[in-house]
Design a protein around this nucleic acid. Sequence first.
RNA 1: UCCUCCUUAGCUCAGUUGGUUAGAGCACAUGACUGUUAAUCAUGGGGUCCUUGGUUCAAGCCCAAGAGGGGGAGCCA
Length: 479
Amino acid sequence: MQRTKVKDLLTGAEAGKEVLLKGWVRTKRGNKFVNFIAVNDGSTIHNLQVVADSEHFGEEALKDVTTGASIAVTGELVASQGKGQAYEVQAKTIEVLGKADPETYPLQKKAHSLEYLREIAHLRFRTNTFGAVFRVRNTLAFAVHKFFNERGFVYMHTPIVTASDAEGAGEMFKVTTLDLDNLPRTEEGQIDFKEDFFGRATNLTVSGQLEGELAAMAFSDIYTFGPTFRAENSNTARHLAEFWMIEPEMAFHDLKMNADLAEEFIKYIIREAIEKNADDIEFLGQRLAEEDKSKPQQERQEMTLMEKLEFVVNNSFERITYTEAIDILLNSNHYKKKKFQYDVAWGVDLQSEHERYLVEKHFKKPVIVTDYPKDIKAFYMRLNDDGKTVAAMDILAPGIGEIVGGSQREERYELLVERMKGVGITEEDLWWYLDTRRFGGCPHAGFGLGFERLVQFVTGMGNIRDVIPFPRTPKNAEF
RNA sequence: UCCUCCUUAGCUCAGUUGGUUAGAGCACAUGACUGUUAAUCAUGGGGUCCUUGGUUCAAGCCCAAGAGGGGGAGCCA
């Protein structure tokens, strides 16, 4: 007999038929006469109830059917006599495929703290919360490809190992095969990377953007979606040392087209999650509502998770320039009452508290901030005609902060070289990048979107470590 | 990296002014119960009070250092 997944069994399409069910036991309860076993196989947040009559199953037969065990059940799929579910399986046979000693199995049939579950990340997939989170993550990942594929973008695999350390996006992890206990030295006493695997110093990538631009100069529209590494000593709920980033790059796009695409993209993939994972999102929403009960009134959410997502999908993102953002902040009561810890002034980067005010208090929706001062942004961003600002854009999301960072790129050779010099990058460092400006260069734009931050936004999870299977953070690379 | 809080049973947590045998709920085991929904009820077993050092007649509680974790900040996606 072919195994049917719980998700399909729960539709009732096979009611009255003999079915084969395989999965993991969530709970077992009952009495001398009848036992109920809740089985989950990850195909849905919902469990399927297996009914085991004592006529067919003695104590011995069910002894090893404990929370966490994997079992195979055959029996008839019938309408449930009980209240909590429409269908259940009246068991004929139950085989324990893998035992789980209840004395030592770390997961119990009760709510565990997220911090505790993080310590047993190898088992946390088996909980309702993480089951829901990673089903949503899967939908979002697939939707990324679907969105770009439908629009004729080419999916480009940019390198993970890179010799370019000139991107300025952050501290990098070194990649080497040199014997660290016996490093080869040059005559000047420096480490001799000529002896290293690649014959030069190499690192893990902090961004695929520069390579992505090269591809966009041939395919028009490309995107990357891959792992990215930052060796920053960042200990926050929104930073990882290893994370996944999506970086589209479009030839012949200006800043506005860039922002339009980013907004459309975010809405599209959220819509996919609402459509495909409604019950997961409902469950995560209930979790948050439960959490909210222990918070003071002021900090509680006005909308449920599902309402929030629908609001984002159905409303335009706010668009303002950096200069307008500064004006809003300066004119706010919050500023006048000196409630900001950091001062607000044109030319200074927006602090977390400022971004939060704009997004969560003032606009109460995602905000696209454009045209930042050139001195606080990367060298490759296109200089505006005012000579002071660059064609940059950040998308700020409620509760998450910066979710997208992008820009129109500087396509003018001389201006680009000048800005590179300003940050200490030589023409030799990036000769291949500069070649795109020498040979058939054109206006183009792109952005980077932190995938985990998007998963956080859609699932409502507060800590980025809970939306990636095995988080890598400073002092933590377990599993 | 900085600020701040936390670490007591398998899990979540209480533990008074430093005082004799460290508690609760859940989990687990045993028993009861004819359809349960984190089933319920009864009984029972279960402790390196994070580690090291110190103060004291006496430390889970006070002091110091260290480890791990949470929240906030910076860096960013």
